[in-house]
């Protein structure tokens, strides 16, 4: 009996992981509309120039990486507002440790990953052990990290060696390294969610903490794990940004609005803010939609502030398309 249900579950999980999330329809529509407008009103680069297409993905790399982590946290019915400043502290600390020397790269990466783990751990502990609402907990840690950064650094600090620019600008054949890393992170996120016990438990915790706890899941550990993973994606995203920029500065995270944008792209991708539902492939589509908007607005030469209006509308419409049929009222 039990074996049947578990195989059943496995099958369902497999089906869920293979099925293409509905957001991809959105993605295709946005892409086609953008491309057609470009074709009519501008020089039609979006459809004809593969480099521009690739650059849509490259533009999305920093946001995409951190959005994968955000997806996991949100699936666990938590949230992480501290990613923007985690990105900043990564960018600045890695650049500071590297000091332009290739031999320091490894130390720097290990160092910032350790910082990331520490931030994720603190976030997770505050949320699970102190029972602080995750929104407030991570808003608080975000303010604390911000204060620490601004008190210690006000400017570009250190520099990254030329060799490290490979991460940001390098190519493997025709494919930029950054895209490979993005896909790798998405794959890891997918693997964790649908191929491991951790993932199954995370869905359980996000769906209903009490039920999960009663069925023997160590809910706190699972959620702390998700927070650590999220902070580590923020660190990788920060490393990518600093590799593009030659030196780390305290404003890279907040300037990119990575906190709210990662949440927005996650929910566009079909992950429910209330937890327990969603996946990383949807998030990837959400991120790409933002990237396409960037490129389309550049191509059309339209004031980019209108883009922000579109982003707002798309967020609401996308989520409405998931929620409108649900019988449950939203909070």
């Amino acid at each position: 009996m039990t074996t049947i249900t578990t195989t059943d579950n496995k099958l369902k999980r497999l089906a869920r992981s293979v099925r293409i999330p509905p957001v991809y329809i959105f993605l295709v529509v946005v892409f086609l509309v953008g491309g057609i407008l470009d074709q009519i009103l501008s020089d039609g680069q979006i459809f004809t120039n593969p480099l521009i297409l690739l650059n849509i993905i490259v533009r999305s790399v920093a946001l995409g990486i951190v959005a994968v982590g955000q997806t996991l946290v949100i699936i666990g019915a938590s949230i992480d507002l501290s990613v923007a400043y985690t990105i900043s502290i990564t960018a600045i600390m890695s650049s500071y440790i590297m000091q332009g020397k290739t031999e320091n790269v490894l130390t720097a990466i290990v160092g910032v990953l350790a910082i990331g783990i520490a931030i994720g751990l603190v976030n997770g502990l505050i949320v699970t052990k102190l029972k602080v609402n995750p929104f407030i907990a991570t808003l608080g840690t975000s303010l604390i990290i911000k204060g620490i950064i601004n008190a210690s650094f006000s400017n570009y600090t250190g520099s990254v060696p030329k060799s490290f620019e490979f991460f940001g600008y390098g190519m493997v054949g025709p494919i930029p390294v950054s895209i490979i890393i993005l896909l790798l992170i998405v794959f890891i996120g997918w693997f964790l969610l649908s191929r491991t016990q951790f993932g199954a438990h995370l869905y359980g915790v996000g769906g209903n903490v009490e039920v999960a706890r009663l069925s023997g899941v160590r809910t706190d550990r699972v959620l702390i794990g998700a927070h650590i993973f999220c902070s580590m994606t923020a660190v990788i995203s920060g490393l990518f940004l600093v590799s593009q920029m030659r030196a780390g500065a305290p404003w890279v995270g907040p300037n990119g609005i990575f906190d709210l944008n990662s949440i927005a792209t996650t929910v566009i991708g079909g992950t429910a803010l209330s937890g327990g539902k969603g996946g990383v492939w949807g998030t990837l589509a959400g991120v790409l939609i933002f990237g396409i908007l960037d490129t389309t607005f550049n191509q059309l030469g339209v004031n980019p502030y209108l883009k922000s209006v579109f982003q707002g509308v798309i967020i609401v419409l996308a989520v409405a398309s998931y929620t409108i049929r649900s019988k449950k009222d939203a909070a």
């Binding site: 521009i52 490259v58 960037d294």
Partner: peptide
């Protein structure tokens, strides 16, 4: 191409110009 005060966007914008 308006980078809206964002280094990362300006980098991607210039990359687009290089690509065309």
């Amino acid at each position: 191409l308006d980078a809206q005060g964002n280094d990362a966007k300006q980098i991607a914008d210039i990359q687009d110009i290089i690509n065309t």
